[in-house]
């Protein structure tokens, strides 16, 4: 019950921070707070669940079970479904754009890798690099830290992103721009980085 309450609070809360490690709830929430770690975990749970539903109920059902359409990186040219990782990335880009007009909603997320096909998806900060390395070497565990960027302190969380479909692994290994060609199914291929500003 306590866990459910925290997630509800996280979903409805303003991201204005009451302190370095807690987030105050708005409206009827009164003085209820949620830890920034719980906030990050809740955000990741939503992201991961949405992506899983898209993968199973859309891609696997239509592509693999009913075989009525393909999924392709070049989905416009091929008139195909977007890949699950692309859907995730498009969501991150839309959140970044929409949140520009919502000063209280102030977080970012991205899909990164130590072995990116697109160099833009390589880690940029020491915390991102350390987090991606940690989730590769400690499967099943998440990475949490704080970092200061441009004078602003952030809580940064990194969650493993695992290759779960043969086509994902095969495409990454065969891509001309990939720096790693020996991924196996079930390998951690990258990570989701969530960054939330906190007070110093």
């Amino acid at each position: 019950m306590k866990k459910r309450k925290s997630i509800v609070i996280a979903a409805t809360a303003s991201l204005a921070l009451a302190g370095a490690s807690t987030i105050a709830a708005a409206g009827d929430g009164g003085d209820a707070t949620v830890s920034v770690k719980a906030m990050a975990d809740a955000l990741h749970l939503v992201m991961d669940s949405d992506r899983t539903v898209y993968t199973k109920k859309i891609v696997n059902r239509l592509v693999k079970k009913e075989k009525v359409i393909k999924a392709s990186e070049h989905f416009e040219d091929d008139k195909a479904l977007v890949l699950p990782a692309q859907m995730f990335r498009f969501g991150a880009e839309l959140v970044a754009k929409r949140s520009e007009k919502l000063p209280d909603v102030n977080f970012t997320y991205s899909l990164q890798s130590l072995w990116p096909i697109n160099k833009q998806n390589a880690p940029q900060t020491p915390a991102e690099k350390a987090g991606l390395k940690y989730v590769v070497e400690n499967k099943g565990k998440n990475y949490y830290t704080t970092e200061t960027l441009g004078g602003q302190k952030y809580f940064t969380a990194v969650y493993a992103d695992t290759g779960v479909a043969p086509v994902c692994v095969a495409c990454h290994n065969a891509h001309p721009d990939t720096p790693k060609k020996d991924f196996k199914l079930g390998d951690v291929m990258g990570g989701v980085v969530i960054r939330i500003p906190v007070e110093s």
Binding site: K139, T162, V164, L185, G186, D187
Partner: peptide, 13 residues
């Protein structure tokens, strides 16, 4: 070598 990566953690269901 071949199964634990997903079945050890419930990855991908």
């Amino acid at each position: 070598e071949n199964c634990e990566g997903c079945h050890g953690y419930g990855i991908g269901g």
